[in-house]
Protein backbone atom coordinates (compact mmCIF):
# COMPACT_ATOMS: atom_id res chain seq x y z
CA UNK A 1 0.00 0.00 0.00
CA UNK A 2 1.23 3.51 -0.74
CA UNK A 3 2.59 5.62 2.10
CA UNK A 4 0.01 8.41 1.63
CA UNK A 5 -2.93 5.98 1.63
CA UNK A 6 -1.60 4.39 4.81
CA UNK A 7 -1.33 7.82 6.41
CA UNK A 8 -4.91 8.69 5.39
CA UNK A 9 -6.21 5.39 6.79
CA UNK A 10 -4.21 6.10 9.97
CA UNK A 11 -5.69 9.60 10.37
CA UNK A 12 -9.20 8.23 9.74
CA UNK A 13 -8.71 5.43 12.30
CA UNK A 14 -7.35 7.89 14.89
CA UNK A 15 -10.30 10.26 14.21
CA UNK A 16 -12.92 7.51 14.64
CA UNK A 17 -11.30 6.24 17.86
CA UNK A 18 -10.98 9.80 19.24
CA UNK A 19 -14.68 10.46 18.58
CA UNK A 20 -15.65 7.11 20.12
CA UNK A 21 -13.86 8.09 23.35
CA UNK A 22 -15.30 11.64 23.30
CA UNK A 23 -18.80 10.11 23.04
CA UNK A 24 -18.45 9.42 26.79
CA UNK A 25 -19.15 13.13 27.38
CA UNK A 26 -22.78 12.44 26.39
CA UNK A 27 -23.05 9.31 28.53
CA UNK A 28 -21.52 5.84 28.82
CA UNK A 29 -22.44 4.04 25.60
CA UNK A 30 -21.48 0.93 23.58
CA UNK A 31 -19.20 2.95 21.25
CA UNK A 32 -17.16 4.27 24.17
CA UNK A 33 -17.05 0.81 25.75
CA UNK A 34 -15.78 -0.68 22.50
CA UNK A 35 -12.93 1.86 22.37
CA UNK A 36 -12.19 1.32 26.07
CA UNK A 37 -11.82 -2.48 25.72
CA UNK A 38 -9.85 -2.00 22.49
CA UNK A 39 -7.42 0.36 24.27
CA UNK A 40 -6.88 -2.18 27.06
CA UNK A 41 -6.18 -4.95 24.54
CA UNK A 42 -3.82 -2.88 22.41
CA UNK A 43 -1.91 -1.59 25.44
CA UNK A 44 -1.50 -5.11 26.88
CA UNK A 45 -0.31 -6.41 23.48
CA UNK A 46 2.10 -3.50 23.16
CA UNK A 47 3.70 -4.01 26.57
CA UNK A 48 3.92 -7.78 26.02
CA UNK A 49 5.98 -7.21 22.86
CA UNK A 50 8.15 -4.54 24.49
CA UNK A 51 8.91 -6.71 27.56
CA UNK A 52 9.85 -9.69 25.41
CA UNK A 53 11.99 -7.68 22.99
CA UNK A 54 13.70 -5.43 25.55
CA UNK A 55 14.13 -7.76 28.52
CA UNK A 56 13.43 -11.44 27.85
CA UNK A 57 15.36 -11.55 24.56
CA UNK A 58 18.59 -9.69 25.55
CA UNK A 59 18.76 -10.76 29.21
CA UNK A 60 17.54 -14.37 28.95
CA UNK A 61 17.59 -15.85 25.43
CA UNK A 62 20.69 -14.04 24.19
CA UNK A 63 22.70 -14.60 27.39
CA UNK A 64 21.66 -18.25 27.72
CA UNK A 65 21.84 -19.49 24.12
CA UNK A 66 24.34 -17.09 22.50
CA UNK A 67 26.73 -16.22 25.37
CA UNK A 68 26.19 -19.48 27.26
CA UNK A 69 25.75 -17.86 30.69
CA UNK A 70 24.17 -20.60 32.78
CA UNK A 71 23.69 -18.29 35.79
CA UNK A 72 20.73 -16.78 33.93
CA UNK A 73 18.87 -20.01 34.66
CA UNK A 74 18.46 -18.90 38.30
CA UNK A 75 16.33 -15.74 37.63
CA UNK A 76 14.59 -17.56 34.76
CA UNK A 77 13.55 -20.39 37.11
CA UNK A 78 12.49 -17.83 39.72
CA UNK A 79 10.58 -15.90 37.04
CA UNK A 80 8.84 -19.11 35.94
CA UNK A 81 7.76 -19.61 39.57
CA UNK A 82 5.61 -16.48 39.12
CA UNK A 83 3.36 -18.48 36.78
CA UNK A 84 2.23 -20.70 39.67
CA UNK A 85 0.28 -17.70 40.97
CA UNK A 86 -2.37 -18.65 38.45
CA UNK A 87 -2.91 -21.96 40.34
CA UNK A 88 -4.10 -21.38 43.92
CA UNK A 89 -2.62 -24.58 45.34
CA UNK A 90 0.94 -23.71 44.33
CA UNK A 91 0.63 -19.91 44.54
CA UNK A 92 2.82 -19.74 47.69
CA UNK A 93 5.90 -20.68 45.59
CA UNK A 94 5.69 -17.31 43.86
CA UNK A 95 6.74 -15.75 47.19
CA UNK A 96 10.36 -16.71 46.47
CA UNK A 97 10.85 -14.44 43.40
CA UNK A 98 8.63 -11.80 45.02
CA UNK A 99 10.79 -11.82 48.16
CA UNK A 100 13.93 -11.32 46.06
CA UNK A 101 12.42 -8.41 44.11
CA UNK A 102 10.89 -6.69 47.13
CA UNK A 103 13.91 -7.28 49.41
CA UNK A 104 16.45 -6.02 46.89
CA UNK A 105 14.19 -3.09 45.94
CA UNK A 106 13.84 -2.14 49.61
CA UNK A 107 17.60 -2.42 50.14
CA UNK A 108 18.63 -0.19 47.24
CA UNK A 109 15.85 2.30 47.99
CA UNK A 110 17.22 3.18 51.46
CA UNK A 111 20.43 5.01 50.41
CA UNK A 112 18.67 6.42 47.30
CA UNK A 113 15.82 7.85 49.40
CA UNK A 114 18.22 9.17 52.02
CA UNK A 115 20.26 10.94 49.36
CA UNK A 116 17.57 12.28 47.00
CA UNK A 117 14.55 12.77 49.23
CA UNK A 118 16.10 13.85 52.51
CA UNK A 119 19.69 15.17 52.35
CA UNK A 120 19.37 16.91 48.94
CA UNK A 121 16.04 18.51 49.91
CA UNK A 122 17.39 19.65 53.28
CA UNK A 123 20.53 21.21 51.82
CA UNK A 124 18.53 22.90 49.03
CA UNK A 125 16.22 24.42 51.68
CA UNK A 126 19.13 26.05 53.51
CA UNK A 127 21.24 27.29 50.62
CA UNK A 128 20.17 30.93 50.21
CA UNK A 129 19.26 32.22 53.65
CA UNK A 130 20.39 35.77 52.82
CA UNK A 131 17.46 36.33 50.45
CA UNK A 132 13.76 36.80 51.34
CA UNK A 133 12.77 33.85 49.17
CA UNK A 134 15.38 31.66 50.88
CA UNK A 135 13.97 32.52 54.32
CA UNK A 136 10.38 31.91 53.11
CA UNK A 137 11.44 28.48 51.79
CA UNK A 138 13.12 27.54 55.09
CA UNK A 139 10.07 28.66 57.12
CA UNK A 140 7.78 26.79 54.68
CA UNK A 141 9.74 23.54 54.90
CA UNK A 142 10.09 23.56 58.70
CA UNK A 143 6.49 24.62 59.42
CA UNK A 144 5.09 22.00 57.01
CA UNK A 145 7.23 19.26 58.57
CA UNK A 146 6.12 20.49 62.03
CA UNK A 147 2.48 20.09 60.95
CA UNK A 148 3.11 16.34 60.47
CA UNK A 149 4.74 16.00 63.91
CA UNK A 150 2.05 14.47 66.08
CA UNK A 151 4.07 13.63 69.23
CA UNK A 152 3.44 17.12 70.63
CA UNK A 153 0.04 18.76 71.00
CA UNK A 154 -0.36 21.47 68.34
CA UNK A 155 -1.24 24.46 70.54
CA UNK A 156 0.26 27.81 71.58
CA UNK A 157 3.32 29.02 69.68
CA UNK A 158 3.92 25.58 68.17
CA UNK A 159 0.26 25.41 67.08
CA UNK A 160 0.51 28.75 65.29
CA UNK A 161 3.71 27.60 63.58
CA UNK A 162 2.03 24.37 62.35
CA UNK A 163 -0.98 26.45 61.22
CA UNK A 164 1.46 28.36 59.00
CA UNK A 165 2.52 24.96 57.61
CA UNK A 166 -1.06 24.22 56.55
CA UNK A 167 -1.12 27.51 54.58
CA UNK A 168 2.02 26.46 52.72
CA UNK A 169 0.44 23.05 52.08
CA UNK A 170 -2.69 24.71 50.68
CA UNK A 171 -0.56 26.79 48.29
CA UNK A 172 1.18 23.56 47.19
CA UNK A 173 -2.15 21.75 46.66
CA UNK A 174 -3.64 24.72 44.80
CA UNK A 175 -0.57 25.08 42.56
CA UNK A 176 -0.50 21.33 41.85
CA UNK A 177 -4.22 21.37 41.06
CA UNK A 178 -3.87 24.38 38.74
CA UNK A 179 -0.92 22.74 37.00
CA UNK A 180 -2.85 19.47 36.53
CA UNK A 181 -5.88 21.30 35.13
CA UNK A 182 -3.71 23.18 32.63
CA UNK A 183 -1.93 19.99 31.49
CA UNK A 184 -5.28 18.23 30.92
CA UNK A 185 -6.62 21.25 29.04
CA UNK A 186 -3.55 21.35 26.80
CA UNK A 187 -4.14 17.66 26.02
CA UNK A 188 -7.77 18.48 25.18
CA UNK A 189 -6.64 21.33 22.90
CA UNK A 190 -4.25 18.89 21.21
CA UNK A 191 -7.04 16.41 20.51
CA UNK A 192 -9.41 19.14 19.28
CA UNK A 193 -6.63 20.44 17.02
CA UNK A 194 -6.23 16.95 15.59
CA UNK A 195 -9.97 16.60 14.90
CA UNK A 196 -10.54 20.11 13.51
CA UNK A 197 -7.22 20.68 11.68
CA UNK A 198 -5.63 17.33 10.75
CA UNK A 199 -8.80 15.31 10.16
CA UNK A 200 -11.45 17.80 8.94
CA UNK A 201 -9.27 20.73 7.86
CA UNK A 202 -11.71 23.23 9.39
CA UNK A 203 -8.95 25.31 11.02
CA UNK A 204 -5.50 25.95 9.68
Amino acid sequence: MEKETLMEIGTFTALVLTLLIFSFLYKENPFYRFAEYLLVGISVGYYLVIICRNTIYPLVIDKLFVQGELLVLVPTALGCLMFVRLKKKWAYLSRLPLALMIGFGAGISIPAMLQARILKQMSASMQSLLTVNGVVILIGVTSTIAYFYFSKRQEGMFGRFTQLGTYFLMVFFGATFGYTVMSRISLLIGRLEFVLRDAFGIIS
Binding site: P75, G79, C80, M82, P97
Partner: peptide, 8 residues
Protein backbone atom coordinates in the same frame (compact mmCIF):
# COMPACT_ATOMS: atom_id res chain seq x y z
CA UNK B 1 17.85 -10.83 37.83
CA UNK B 2 15.26 -8.39 39.17
CA UNK B 3 14.56 -7.13 35.65
CA UNK B 4 14.06 -10.69 34.40
CA UNK B 5 11.72 -11.62 37.27
CA UNK B 6 9.83 -8.35 36.76
CA UNK B 7 9.39 -9.17 33.05
CA UNK B 8 7.98 -12.60 33.97
Amino acid sequence: WVQIIFAF
